[in-house]
Design a protein around this nucleic acid. Structure first.
Lengths: 311, 311
DNA sequence: AGCATCTCTGCTCATCTGAGCAGAGCCATG
DNA sequence: CATGGCTCTGCTCAGATGAGCAGAGATGCT
């Protein structure tokens, strides 16, 4: 009997039959130490495959690699789901679990908005925090009729955290710089932006630079604007601000018309939680992570692998 | 954190990260005994799935159940292969492994023939026995041109076992009883049949009762004969003899024209190894097994489950 | 409420298992 | 043929683990 067959027999007796290594040794006429070694080999060679099958399973190896590679505080990676489309769901749930377990419990949380964050908000358990203040970090709009959009993200997160939401009453991007400056000059708005900027925890997503963007959908930008941004190197936006692969603002004039906290606050915040799912966002995710724009990353396995595979 | 999520975390740390239960307990704030219990539960609930992925893997649970249920000496069950068609291959290899490991090593082995046994013969390693005498247990013919058929089964097995083959120079079924009696009266033939009957180890397959049978292919029976046998309750044949679900000869007259060892010898032999693969043979397999016609069964998982699922 | 029952927890202790080591066999080279 | 690596083996020993148990707490029934 060759060694490989022996591994199979040993593995069967050990895992299927729960025999002790001693028993197996006696049964197959080998020493118990050899049994142990064969088991290790069987695992190494992939004869024994151990899988954790659960929607909330994670990939600790990838998490560790990401933390290491990009100097993050923490990372959460969920396995790619069998059925496509469940990725967002799983990532959102993982993000919710992570938030609920954050210590110290956040007291001031600044949030962006989008489909991803809506999912995170919905996945948060009631009582995830006790008296959290949730501030919108950038201008928002009703993204989609059904789910309530930007405001509802903050409201839901606040409700479930037994706290209150502070909404930013402004569009995301204004047509004229003057209008934007006027809005920011408003004392209420200024106070809210200040509050957001001082939040010690940020929770945000990013959008890819493509014509299906929420900004186009809501009329802040045209498909042509997006094309031009892409031409100038934009890979996507976060908090409404379009950046290139090096993390720099692509169009300063456009940026000047964007209402919200500046990206530098993400770098300096004590916790900046970035949630992203899906292949379309691999590029912007890479940008965010490699430019230190987040300290905690929550994503799916395929994104994690894309981030890690670079030379 | 509910218990199920806890199981997932514990399983990840234990299996993916190789942490000790102590460490995991400290990490998650639970006692090490709870970690152990969660691990057990995770396996029970199927959150942790341990699979042995190898062409030579077996299903020890099913084997034990078969031995128990049908009072067998031994059983070998191989997992169903992903690619259909590989079942015969795997079963044959398992049968070969089993034969090679038989103790005491067979000195006199009586064999039937067929595609299954050809595969078993081909899978036997050289030197599987030392000086075995292989006798044909029933009349044989060249089943298929390419592989040599009946005779080659015995010859190959004998060669690889450093022994000699004793071939039965007779068709499987004769047209007239008189011819059959004449052949059996021949002293050489009689001696061979005697030798086969006295073998302490039998190795055989069975065929289903259908018109694609080797007996039809070789002209011993017509499709009409098969239909008639089926109508009278035949589920298949072994050693050329057609039996019903209760293990009784269906057509005594036909049986009287069949050359070979009688089925009772299978019951009394110290080892009767029955090899079968494929859904077409589930019925005849059930008959063989439940009527004590074999003492060692080698088969695939789907057959095993079919045999075990009865009430 | 009072009581019985069931489940869950953390413990002791015996057993099981992995790390690390020294000796045996094996091969290639000088 | 001797020598030095190399792998493989079975050992010791410490650390990891599972079985079984008694007490705590929950649950349900009268």
């Amino acid at each position: 009997m060759d060694d490989e067959l022996l591994m199979v027999r040993v593995a069967e007796l050990s895992y299927d039959e729960n025999r002790t290594q001693d028993e197996i040794g006696a049964l197959l006429g080998i020493s118990r130490w050899k049994v142990g070694r064969l088991l290790v080999q069987a695992r190494e060679r992939g004869i024994v495959r151990i899988e954790i099958v659960h929607p909330r399973a994670r990939r600790l190896g990838a998490e560790r690699a990401l933390v290491e590679r990009f100097g993050l505080k923490d990372a959460v990676v969920v396995p790619t789901a069998e059925e496509a489309g469940a990725a967002l769901e799983r990532v959102a749930r993982a993000a919710a679990d992570m938030l609920a377990a954050l210590r110290p419990v956040p007291r001031a949380l600044a949030v962006s908005w989008g489909r991803t964050l809506t999912a995170v908000a919905d996945a948060l358990p009631s009582g995830w925090a006790h008296g959290v203040t949730v501030v919108q970090a950038n201008g928002g709009v009703s993204l989609s009729r059904r789910s309530g959009g930007a405001a509802s993200v903050a409201v839901t997160i606040a409700q479930r955290g037994e706290g209150q939401a502070v909404l930013l009453p402004s569009p995301a991007i204004l047509e004229r710089v003057e209008t934007k400056q006027a809005i920011e000059a408003d004392r209420t708005v200024a106070a809210i932006l200040e509050q957001a900027a001082n939040a010690n925890t940020f929770l945000f997503t990013a959008g890819p630079c493509d014509p299906a963007s929420a900004h186009v959908e809501n009329g802040y930008l045209s498909a042509d604007d997006i094309a031009e941004l892409a031409r100038r190197g934009a890979v996507g936006d976060l908090l409404g601000r379009y950046i290139d692969a090096d993390g720099n603002i692509v169009d300063p004039q456009l940026d000047a018309r964007t209402v919200g906290v500046g990206l530098d606050r993400l770098r300096s915040a004590s916790r900046a939680v970035f949630v992203t799912a899906g292949a379309a966002k691999h590029d912007i995710a890479r940008t965010v992570v490699s430019n230190g724009l987040c300290s905690i990353l929550v994503t799916d396995e395929s994104t994690a692998l894309a981030l890690l595979e670079e030379i």
